[in-house]
Simulated assay, not measured.
Amino acid sequence: MLVEGPVEIVLDDGTVARSERFMVALCTCRRSRIYPWCDTSHRPRERAVPAPEDRNPS
């Protein structure tokens, strides 16, 4: 979720998170390592696919 800043958020434990940026991305899935800010951890990761091996050896 994008929010225009500056932003001040009170977390469940009473901690206050602040950002002075003009726009911030808030995490709504709680997967972010920098919660409450979004680090795009919600995006599916694609694994590198190895090159196909030659299936018809000579």
Rank of each mutant, 00 (worst) to 15 (best):
C27A: 04
P44M: 07
P50T: 07
M1K: 06
F22R: 13
P52Y: 05
P6H: 07
V16F: 08
A51W: 03
D12K: 15
D39M: 05
V24F: 04
E8P: 03
L11V: 12
P52S: 10
D39V: 14
E8V: 07
P44Q: 09
T40A: 07
A17W: 10
T40N: 09
S19N: 07
M1Q: 09
G14F: 12
C29I: 14
D13Q: 13
C29W: 15
V7M: 03
I9R: 02
R55T: 06
R21M: 01
V7N: 00
P44A: 06
R33E: 10
R31F: 12
S41R: 13
E20K: 11
V49I: 15
G5C: 07
E20G: 11
L2A: 10
P50G: 11
C27Y: 03
C38L: 06
C27P: 02
E20P: 02
A48I: 15
V7S: 02
E4T: 12
A51D: 07
E8F: 06
E20T: 12
L26S: 01
V3H: 06
F22E: 11
P6I: 13
S32Q: 04
V49T: 15
E20S: 14
E20C: 11
V3S: 08
R45H: 13
S32F: 07
S58H: 06
A51H: 02
D39K: 04
R30L: 14
R45S: 08
D39I: 03
F22K: 11
R33C: 00
P6G: 09
E53Q: 07
P57T: 01
L2I: 08
Y35A: 06
V3A: 08
V24H: 00
R30G: 04
H42N: 02
L11T: 13
D13M: 08
E8K: 12
T28P: 01
P50Q: 09
T15R: 15
Y35L: 06
R47V: 00
M23H: 01
P36G: 06
S32W: 05
L26R: 01
M1L: 14
I34S: 03
M1N: 13
W37I: 05
M1R: 12
L11Q: 14
P6D: 12
A48F: 15
V16C: 08
C27K: 01
V7E: 00
R55A: 12
S19D: 03
S58Y: 06
A51T: 04
E20Q: 14
W37T: 07
A51Q: 09
V10Y: 14
V24A: 02
P50I: 13
L2F: 07
L26D: 05
P57K: 09
F22I: 12
P6C: 09
D54T: 01
C38T: 09
I9E: 04
R18Y: 05
L26F: 08
D54F: 00
W37G: 03
F22M: 13
P50S: 10
R47H: 02
R33I: 01
R47Y: 04
E46T: 06
R30N: 13
R47M: 00
I9V: 12
G5N: 01
P44T: 11
